[in-house]
């Protein structure tokens, strides 16, 4: 085999592998419904606490086996701090921040999104197993960043 041929084989294998990965990714995204945060609208950071739905943070049932978690991040705590949802329910997090950028990671799950001042974050997930997960602020938000956390309890 000439070297040029090895070269071509290697390059085609590289390109082919990347293509297969991409197809798998988009299959999981669009056919299996694993979604990322999208454009959900804007909000004035100073008026968060008086703007619905953020005037009443907490968990509410919005339909059969469907729940909404309205959560506010501000330095250095989440409101509400403890979230309880039933196992197997469709849970939509609607969230924003009143001050700086924060992050929300429900560890052990794929609920992982940013809170950016002026933007509303929305993400839907289902927790199948009962249990407890930390909700960790995973974006640096000042000297007390490591103090900012909450708990998700799946019942």
């Amino acid at each position: 085999m000439t070297t040029e041929k090895i070269e071509k084989v290697f390059l085609s294998l590289s390109a082919g592998m990347l293509l297969v990965f991409l197809v798998a990714l988009f299959y999981s995204a669009f056919a299996m419904g694993i979604h990322l945060p999208d454009r959900e609208g804007e909000i004035h950071p100073a008026e968060v606490r008086s703007t619905p739905p953020f005037d009443e943070p907490g968990v509410r049932e919005v339909g059969p086996n469907q729940y909404e978690v309205v959560m506010i991040g501000s330095a250095w705590s989440f409101t509400p701090r403890e979230v309880r949802v039933p196992a197997g329910a469709e849970v939509t997090f609607i969230s924003t921040t009143t001050d700086v950028i924060h992050g929300v990671h429900v560890e052990g799950t794929r609920v992982n999104f940013m809170l950016i001042p002026g933007q509303i974050s929305k993400i839907t997930s289902t927790f199948r197993e009962p249990g407890e997960h930390l909700i960790i602020c995973h974006e640096f938000c000042g000297a007390g960043h490591h103090l900012m956390y909450g708990v998700l309890i799946v019942e």
Binding site: L18, F21, L22, L25, F26, A29, H35, L36, P37, D38, R39, E40, E42, G103, N112, F113, M114, L115, I116, G118, Q119, I120, S121, K122
Partner: peptide, 21 residues
């Protein structure tokens, strides 16, 4: 910025493809 609000998922997918490129 995959986990950022305010950016459409379509644009995120385009950037994902180019990143693989």
């Amino acid at each position: 910025q995959y986990t950022d609000p305010g950016i459409s998922t379509g644009m995120k997918a385009i950037h994902a493809t180019l990143t693989f490129g």
